[in-house]
């Protein structure tokens, strides 16, 4: 009953691109299949309206998933991003709303970004210096922040964000042009891509996640790298809050409920190894697109009233299939304990 005993050969029918490491291609084909399929059912799905909205909708998930990818690559996890978003939205709203302090966005936005980075740093300190396992630390932060946000808001909503902010989030910075969220998401993805795949810092993050001892011997500071990843995540949550929350009708304590689950699902479906060190940003971005597609596709399929109650099941089974498929395909190629 050793490791060797069960190793099975790869079935011939499984195409090689589907083996681990080729997750991006698999996701691309899956997305293409979904798009072609829904196009045949209802061609109106492929309108500029739907597509524009799809990108706007995926923006916050994409921005935050970039940060969480960094964290997961170092072998840690952050489950507090949803609560962080609610907390930061409350801070943003309190500072810049006409009905609250009515500060200039030039003060409010940097302050929100700083607050986000600070929460991320707190997570990072707990995990690195406090040596609390990240799933525990961020679970605690998630619970506590949600309670704190509800308490802070005292049961009322915040409305009246500055017009510049809501206009930028809904229509774009200028009269034409893409909404702010899409621009910021594209920028974030680009910077993170450069960082991860073309800069020494990215290699160091992989190294820490891939083999802690080896990274230490190579002279890398595990503490500093992990701390950096958590701080970046906090900062990116703040960024996502700024570009996405003004689209919503009001700021309430329930913002970002289950957001952490969505983000982590995207990271995992995107092929990033939960034990760190393996995975690419491209897969995560494609996974975000796929997960964002599910809701509108189900609407356009007209699955009917009782079908709508199966929507969550469809989503769940898709996630299950996505995380199992390429592992099942790559069995015998590489195994993890």
């Amino acid at each position: 009953m050793g490791v060797r005993g069960r190793r099975t050969r790869l079935p011939r029918s499984v195409p090689s691109w589907f083996r681990s490491g080729h997750r991006e291609l698999g996701l691309c084909l899956l997305i293409a299949a979904v798009l072609v399929g829904i196009g045949m059912v209802d061609p109106r799905f492929h309108s500029t309206g739907t597509w524009n909205d799809l990108l706007v909708r995926s923006a916050p998930t994409m921005i935050v998933a970039c940060g969480v990818t960094l964290v997961v690559l170092t072998g840690e996890i952050d489950v507090s991003v949803g609560s962080q978003m609610a907390f930061l939205a409350a801070i943003l709203g309190t500072m810049v709303s006409r009905t609250e302090w009515n500060l200039s966005p030039w003060i409010g936005l940097p302050a929100t970004l700083a607050a986000g980075a600070a929460i991320g740093m707190l997570n990072g300190i707990l995990v690195t210096i406090g040596r609390v396992p990240s799933i525990v630390a961020t679970l605690g932060v998630m619970t506590a922040l949600r309670g704190a946000t509800t308490w802070m808001m005292g049961g009322s909503n915040i409305e009246g964000l500055p017009d510049a902010l809501t206009r930028a989030a809904k229509q774009g910075l200028f009269r034409a042009g893409p909404p702010l969220g899409v621009v910021v998401a594209a920028g974030t993805a680009f910077v993170c891509y450069l960082l991860l795949h073309h800069m020494p810092l990215g290699r160091h993050l992989y190294a820490v996640g891939g083999g802690r001892e080896a990274a230490r011997l190579a002279g890398l500071s595990e503490i500093r790298l992990k701390w950096f990843a958590f701080a970046v995540t906090g900062f990116l949550v703040a960024l996502a809050t700024i570009v996405d929350v003004p689209r919503l009708p009001k700021i309430e304590a329930g913002i970002g409920v289950d957001f952490e689950l969505l983000v982590i699902t995207c990271v995992v479906v995107g092929g990033v190894s939960i034990s760190g060190g393996r995975g690419r940003l491209g897969g995560v971005l494609l996974a975000v697109l796929l997960m964002t597609l599910i809701r509108p596709v189900l609407t356009f399929l007209e699955i009917g009233e009782s079908g709508e109650k199966w929507a969550k099941a469809v989503q769940g089974v898709m996630i299950l299939a996505a995380v199992l498929s390429d592992r099942a395909a790559s069995r015998g190629v590489r195994r993890e304990p």
């Binding site: 969550k312 769940g316 069995r331 993890e336």
Partner: peptide, 26 residues
């Protein structure tokens, strides 16, 4: 299939709840 328990149960968490809602129709 040798997938990390966190990932397997994250996925089945969504699937079980969804199936429960589907068959009972809420």
């Amino acid at each position: 299939v040798r997938v990390h328990p966190l990932i397997v149960t994250l996925a089945t968490m969504a699937a079980f709840r969804g199936v429960a809602e589907g068959i009972s129709q809420g």
